[in-house]
Design a protein around this nucleic acid. Structure first.
Lengths: 227, 227
DNA sequence: GTCTATAATGAGATAGAC
DNA sequence: GTCTATCTCATTATAGAC
């Protein structure tokens, strides 16, 4: 299903073609994020992009290929942001656990909160990808190389935790991170009391801090300090 | 979409009818859990149940109604397991945070790990429900009454944490719990080193303990002990 | 590259016989 | 309650004109 070979382009595509392609990918990102893979239709995508359905196939290939392209498109810049954040932090002195987790979580969540509607849609899209075994291969190809780098750092910082525990906690952390994209409304609902009164407006910054507090403490809890 | 009114039954359904209905709901549960709502087809469900497609509509109503029925069917017994666990634990003495979280997480995860293929499928199904805003209403009706009980207890135990923080952490916890259903394979992959060697076989019991460690510490981290 | 038109398939739902 | 047969509609994908 995931035949993702690139077509050999004979010539550099025209500017107009590139714009159309970008519009189609943007539209696909939005529609996939709202309805999931099966619930999205090429027609919806074409309508939103303002083109004909045939053009979606022309630029995006099959529906499967289009989905992969949309997920992969932002995965690479995201990976760079994460790795660069880690490298920049390493310049400042020895890494601690919280910094490592922050370098993984913050680039993504900053984009989701402040990167505009496209990144917000992308966040929901990745939440879909993460709950469907069908897209495991996409997740592995797009995200696991970066994840391995961070897990290696965490293992170094938590030598007394087992690999299985660290792997499990990393998945817990990613799921929690994605729940901010997929379930923000639910977080806000549960943050109110029965009269619907919230005792604090949860800003994006506060939400990221809460997630970091939660995950940092969670990782430390599985690492017995006395070996 | 979520018109869930019950048909007025004129007569008690026959035993055979009830069995057919159960087979259809079981099949729907499996197919929905594997392909999501949009990816599942009434025809798949009928084939798996060994009946004609018309029978699926007859017993399950529309596809939407069928989906709601499948999610709600196990939500009620699950809610009772959770509330009963909390009540039983309260008999033994004052509640602590870990016990409250365990009474929420363990009934579900015990069923997922030991309750057979149906509960395993149900776990994956709920993971789907939780990442799709479209099913918020189902989640609220089926699960939020129980969630409110547990959040009330947690607030009592963590008086210095804000409601917003507790709500967020509860969503993190639920997401982490569901990741065990939806991403068990990914947890196992990330728990190995690059040679594919795992340093500990993660049993269900160990995984539940890891999740409890992670979440308990996470909640405590957002509760400043000195007011 | 872009469009119109259509092919080919599969979907959910239902009417009506038994 | 169950089954056969079918209706109606939406889907992906492509062929071919411009």
């Amino acid at each position: 299903m995931l035949n993702t070979k690139q077509k050999q382009r004979q010539r550099a595509p025209s500017k107009r073609s590139l714009e159309t392609r970008a519009r189609i990918l943007d539209a696909a990102e939005t529609v996939f994020s709202e309805h999931g893979f099966d619930g999205a239709s090429i027609r919806d995508i074409a309508t939103r992009a303002g083109v004909q359905t045939a053009l979606v196939n022309h630029h995006g290939g099959s529906k499967d290929e289009l989905f992969f392209t949309v997920v992969a498109r932002r995965a690479e810049p995201l990976s760079h942001l994460r790795v660069n954040a880690l490298a920049a932090r390493e310049e400042l002195g020895p890494l601690d656990l919280r910094s490592v987790l922050a370098c993984f979580l913050e680039p993504f969540l900053h984009k989701v909160f402040e990167g505009g509607a496209h990144w917000r849609a992308y966040g929901r899209l990745i939440a879909h990808v993460s709950t469907d075994e069908r897209w495991r291969e996409i997740a592995e190809r797009c995200f696991d190389p970066t994840v391995e780098i961070f897990i290696t750092e965490i293992r170094r910082l938590l030598p007394n935790a087992s690999r299985a525990q660290i792997g499990a906690c990393f998945v817990f952390m990613v799921s929690s991170m994605l729940s901010i994209c997929a379930s923000l409304g639910r977080i806000e609902t549960l943050g109110r009391d029965q009269e619907g009164i919230s005792d604090s407006n949860a800003t994006p910054t506060q939400m990221i801090e809460t997630l970091l507090d939660f995950c940092e403490a969670g990782f430390l809890a599985i690492s017995p300090l006395k070996a």
